[in-house]
Design a protein around this nucleic acid. Structure first.
Length: 441
RNA sequence: GUGCCCUUAGCUCAGUUGGUCAGAGCGCUUGUCUGUGGAACAAGAGGUCACGGGUUCAAGCCCCGUAGGGCACCCCA
C-alpha cells in the first residue's frame, strides 16, 4: 500500500458473496451431481461470455429488464451482464447455425446477475444450472427436460419438491373464456399465481381491485380450481373451453407431455398440473414448469418452459426450444435446511501427521496414498505435537488420520484413526493403501 | 423500484428513561499435557460500540445520511 493510497476496509457489493472452502465444497458437489445427470441424459456442455451486447439481452425478459446490469464499456458500447442462461443459448444457436447439429442439447452451469433486492435465497450474483433442447417441437423434448429436472432434484435429495406444470396458453384462454379483455390478462396471471400464498379470496380481491369484474374473477378461479387426476382435469378443462382450437392444442400437448413423463418413469406426484402457474419471463410460449418446495420459503427452486420465438428473434429461421434452469443457491438453502444429502466437510480424505519430526516417513506414506488417487493432506505442522496435528485435521473436517511413527514402523503397521468417532485401528503397512481405499468406498 | 426492522469483541448476544456501559458465553492464544485432538482448570489477547455528520455539558443509547444484513411488496433461480 503506497502512502497515496487510502486504506479501504475489505468489502464486497451487496448481494454478492465470497464462497469460502466450506461453501465451495458443497457447491461443487452439487454441480458435479447435476453435470453427471445432464450428461447421463446426453447433454453436451456449453459456456458463453458473462457480458453480452445489451441489444442481445433486451426485449426478452419483459418488465424484468429493469433488473439487468447494463453499462457502457470503455469503447462506448452498450453492454450488459447476462440475466439468465437462456438468452445466451438462443444467441448461440442463432449465431452458429452452420456448426450446430439439431436437435441441439446443451447444459450450462454459470453465474448470472440481476440487480434485485437481496433476500433469503436471492442474490445479485447467483448460479444457474441449465439444460435446454433446441430444434425439437414435439413434447418429447419437454418430457426429456422435465425428467432431467426431476432427476437432478432427486440427486441432491430434494424429495419434498414437486414440479408444477402448465401451458402458457391455458391461463390465457381461461381468462379469455371468462370474457376478460386482453389488456387485463396480465393482472389475472399475476394474481392467480399467488393462489397458494393468499388463497382464493385473496386472489379474487386482488383481481377485482385490479379492475376485473367480480363475475369474471369468479369464473377464472372456478376453472383453475378444478381438481382430479391429470387426465380428468384435462378433459374437464377441454369441456369448459370447448370450441377453442387454441386451447385444445395446448391441452393436447399437456396430455401428451404427462403421458410421456409417465412412460419415462417420472412419478405422478413429482410432476403435477397446476393451472395457476404463470411465469414472468416473456419468451415462454408453450408448456411451462416450476419446481417448488414448501420449506424453506425460498420461492421456486427451478423453472423453465418452451420458447418458440426467442431464437428466431435473432434473425435466424425460427427454431423452437425448451429448457430448464435450476437455481443453485436456493437448492443449497433447502439442502442445508433439511439435510437432504450428506454435506462434505473437507476435500482431503486422509490426513498424515508427522510423528517425531520424521517428515520423510510421513511423506512416503502420503505419496503412496496419492498415487492411488486418495486425496491426502500431509501435515504442515511437523513441529507441533501429534495431538495438535490431529486437532487441526479434525477441525478441517478430514475423516481419517493415517499415523506412522516409530512404534508402528517397528511393527510393520499403520495406525488409522477415525477423526469423527475417535476409533483407532491398526492395519498392515504393506496393505495400508488398499485398506483405506476399501474403507472409503 | 417501494415500505419496515437490524448492525456492540472472531461468533451469538447483554447493555435500563442519554451521565464508570464498554460486558457475558462460546471461540482463540498460552500453560497443566516433549506419540493421539475435540474435556477440565488457570491465565491472556481481542472492540475508535458499521461508517460519516448533527443535537447535548455529556451518546452504544436521540436525529439525519451512507454502507451492509434481514423481512414484506414487486418479481424471480
Amino acid at each position: 500500500m503506497t502512502a497515496t493510497q487510502a486504506t479501504r476496509k475489505p468489502s464486497i457489493l451487496k448481494g454478492f458473496r465470497d464462497y469460502l472452502p466450506e461453501q465451495m465444497i458443497l457447491r461443487q458437489e452439487i454441480i458435479n451431481r447435476f453435470k453427471a445427470i445432464f450428461e447421463l441424459h446426453g447433454f453436451d456442455p456449453l459456456d458463453t461470455p458473462a457480458i453480452e451486447y445489451l441489444e442481445v439481452l433486451t426485449g426478452k425478459a419483459g418488465e424484468n429488464e429493469k433488473l439487468m446490469y447494463a453499462f457502457e464499456d470503455q469503447g462506448g458500447r452498450s453492454v450488459g451482464l447476462r440475466y439468465d442462461l437462456t438468452v445466451p443459448l438462443a444467441r448461440v444457436v442463432a449465431m452458429h447455425q452452420s456448426e450446430i447439429v439439431l436437435p441441439f442439447k446443451r447444459y450450462h452451469v454459470a453465474p448470472v446477475w440481476r440487480a434485485d433486492r437481496p433476500q433469503r435465497g436471492r442474490f445479485r450474483e447467483f448460479w444457474q444450472c441449465d439444460a435446454d433442447i433446441a430444434g425439437v417441437e414435439s413434447m418429447a423434448a419437454d418430457a426429456e427436460i422435465v425428467s432431467v429436472l426431476t432427476d437432478c432434484l432427486a440427486a441432491v435429495g430434494l424429495d419434498n419438491s414437486v414440479v408444477h406444470m402448465s401451458h402458457r396458453r391455458l391461463l390465457e384462454r381461461i381468462a379469455m373464456a371468462a370474457g376478460i379483455p386482453q389488456e387485463q390478462a396480465a393482472q389475472v396471471y399475476r394474481s392467480v399465481d399467488k393462489l397458494d400464498k393468499i388463497g382464493a379470496e385473496g386472489v379474487r380481491k386482488e383481481m377485482v381491485e385490479g379492475g376485473i369484474e367480480a363475475s369474471q374473477a369468479t369464473q377464472v378461479l372456478d376453472t383453475i380450481s378444478i381438481s382430479g387426476s391429470i387426465e380428468d382435469l384435462l378433459v374437464e378443462l377441454s369441456r369448459r373451453l370447448q370450441n377453442d382450437a387454441n386451447a385444445e392444442g395446448a391441452i393436447a400437448e399437456m396430455t401428451q407431455l404427462f403421458q410421456l413423463l409417465h412412460q419415462m418413469g417420472v412419478p405422478n406426484d413429482k410432476a403435477v398440473l397446476d393451472l395457476t402457474l404463470a411465469r414472468g419471463l416473456d419468451y415462454y410460449t408453450g408448456p411451462v414448469f416450476e419446481a417448488k418446495v414448501t420449506e424453506p420459503k425460498v420461492g421456486s427452486v427451478a423453472g423453465g418452459g418452451r420458447y418458440e420465438g426467442l431464437i428466431g428473434s435473432f434473425g435466424s429461421r425460427s427454431i423452437s426450444a425448451t429448457g430448464v434452469s435450476l437455481g443453485l443457491e436456493r437448492i443449497i438453502e433447502v439442502i442445508r435446511e433439511h439435510g437432504t444429502m450428506p454435506i462434505p466437510t473437507a476435500v482431503a480424505q486422509v490426513f498424515v501427521p508427522v510423528v517425531d519430526r520424521n517428515l520423510g516417513s510421513a511423506a512416503e506414506l502420503t505419496s503412496e496414498l496419492r498415487a492411488r488417487g486418495l486425496k491426502t493432506d500431509l501435515s504442515l505442522l511437523d513441529g507441533k505435537s501429534l495431538g495438535e496435528q490431529l486437532k487441526y485435521a479434525g477441525r478441517r473436517g478430514i475423516g481419517l488420520a493415517a499415523i506412522l511413527g516409530p512404534d508402528e514402523a517397528a511393527r510393520g503397521v499403520v495406525a488409522l484413526k477415525n477423526l469423527v468417532t475417535g476409533d483407532q485401528i491398526e492395519l498392515e503397512r504393506a496393505e495400508i493403501v488398499q485398506s483405506i481405499e476399501r474403507m472409503l468406498t
